[in-house]
Design a protein around this nucleic acid. Sequence first.
RNA 1: GCCUCCGUAGCUCAGUGGAUAGAGCAACGGCCUUCUAAUCCGUCGGUCGCAGGUUCGAAUCCUGCCGGGGGCACCA
Length: 556
Amino acid sequence: MTPQELSSALARIVTDLVGARGLDLVVTDSDTQVERPKNRDHGDWASNVAMKFAKRLGTNPREFAQEVATAAESIDGVAKAEVAGPGFINLTLDAASAGETARRVVEQGENYGRSDVLAGQRINLEFVSANPTGPLHMGHTRWAALGDSTARVLRAAGAEVTNEYYINDAGAQMNKFGRSVLAAALGEDAPEDAYPGEYIQSLGARVREQIPGLAELAASDRDAALEQAQELAYQLQLAEIKDSLERFNVHFDVFFSERTLHADGEDGEPSRIAAAIDRLREQGHVYEEDDAIWVRTTAFGDDKDRVFTRGNGVYTYFAADAAYYLDKMDRGFTEKIYLLGADHHGYIGRLTAIAGAAGDDIETSITVLIGQLVNLNGARLSKRAGNIIELDDLLEWLGTDALRYWLARYPADSPLALDGEKLRSRSNDNPVFYVQYAHARTCAVDRNAAAAGLDRSAFAPELLTHETETELLGKLQQYPGIVAGAAELREPHRIARFLEEFAAAFHRWYDNCRVLPMGDEPITDLHRTRLWLNDAAGQVLRNGLDLIGVSAPERL
RNA sequence: GCCUCCGUAGCUCAGUGGAUAGAGCAACGGCCUUCUAAUCCGUCGGUCGCAGGUUCGAAUCCUGCCGGGGGCACCA
């Protein structure tokens, strides 16, 4: 008996009771969702359906609850149904029905927790998108972890997801980057507005090495030298970014170059930006004023209209954004998600306006998730302030697992601080170890069982009656709902928080219920059944950790 | 000024309109001759920023105020 099955059974019961009163009310599973009560005295699962419907039925919640409870007692697998408080229906499963979950988890393996609640959705998830003019730093790290985990959770719920990185490889920043690297390569003083940071020097050295005769070329044709140096430095830097991301266990399906939007089309076709502006003009959203070309984003809720083409004839950054959005649309994504830092929150209005201008439904086709920035030991990091801490440094210092777990366990809109001492500690200060330790323990039990000749030849779920077993089974049952909820809300931190609760339930069970026989005690079906439960617990820990990109070691 | 996020235990923070608001840390006290004590058990700890409102029911939704972060470009 799963919570989903329980909800369905309750929906049928309530439908019948409503029908018996001659009322025409539609009752769906979502009306009868059960929740895990905080208090164990309130049973295994509880429903508030009576309180929701009593008013519409013109009856007393407790009376209606009693009717539902009476019918619910005949559901197969339900041992007890009681009315409590203002009209809650508290359901208790019989031990065999609850215990059956362990076998189901083991049988479904890594598929346990996957669902199809988001089936049919084609989602484009854009995140990080850092300029390729320097290494990834801490400001990007949170979005990398959050974005990749979000994608994993969405996929687990059946969505088709493309992880996408937009490369700002056109425009003034790139030129500044090129000039900085060229000067470094030639041993010149840094230009006035040069990028700070030692990485420029090392890029300069590599550029000098890989472009023979650069100094001579610079002397005869400075622009040509700049172009070559800039291009090579860009490729080197982008490769390093990709490398860092892979080491952080973050995977992108598409690296989308802004240049492709600016480039002229084939056979004299206009660039994609020009084409995009034309398309929006045909929709009636583009106008000219003061020598500039504008888009009427205010028609879709933006505070002010935005410029596409400046008075000097140059496209704004936003024009490329618009063309990029249209490209995503043309690629058939049903939803475009942008994961941005709080410093970009002013972009929400204009981005959603472009979606509207392009003819998309702004309620469903675009989602802009804004996350708060990260602090490190109190000092917020910014590239401009010069105190850059690179992702690579953080990885070397803390490791992928600790860093990803910590960044994944807070809601995106919650301020977050990285505490190096905590992340390096091997204690309850550091929740990733707590969860990984639980997994390692399941593996230790498995090894010891094999050595002791304990096998899985029997499964007697009705024997799993210890209080801590009921708790652990309850957590196993909750897991699929947690994953589905995290996907629907785009909140992967729910997975991490659940894993911590799950690990706690496992540790308590481990402390109270031995899997292996003691000494020369004979092996019983209870031992064998508990081995199944141990397997199931390990499976859920693996599945959950995988959703946040963290490893599940077999030993610590 | 406008927009937006946040305000919950001493600290860091969870909490999808439900029952007595939770966890970790910190403090204090317990459990190892048996599967990993990186675990487990207990005690202490609250004006959910403030005030109204909606609701059978509000930390959660609405309004106003107070305090803090961020944002309000023909920059990228």
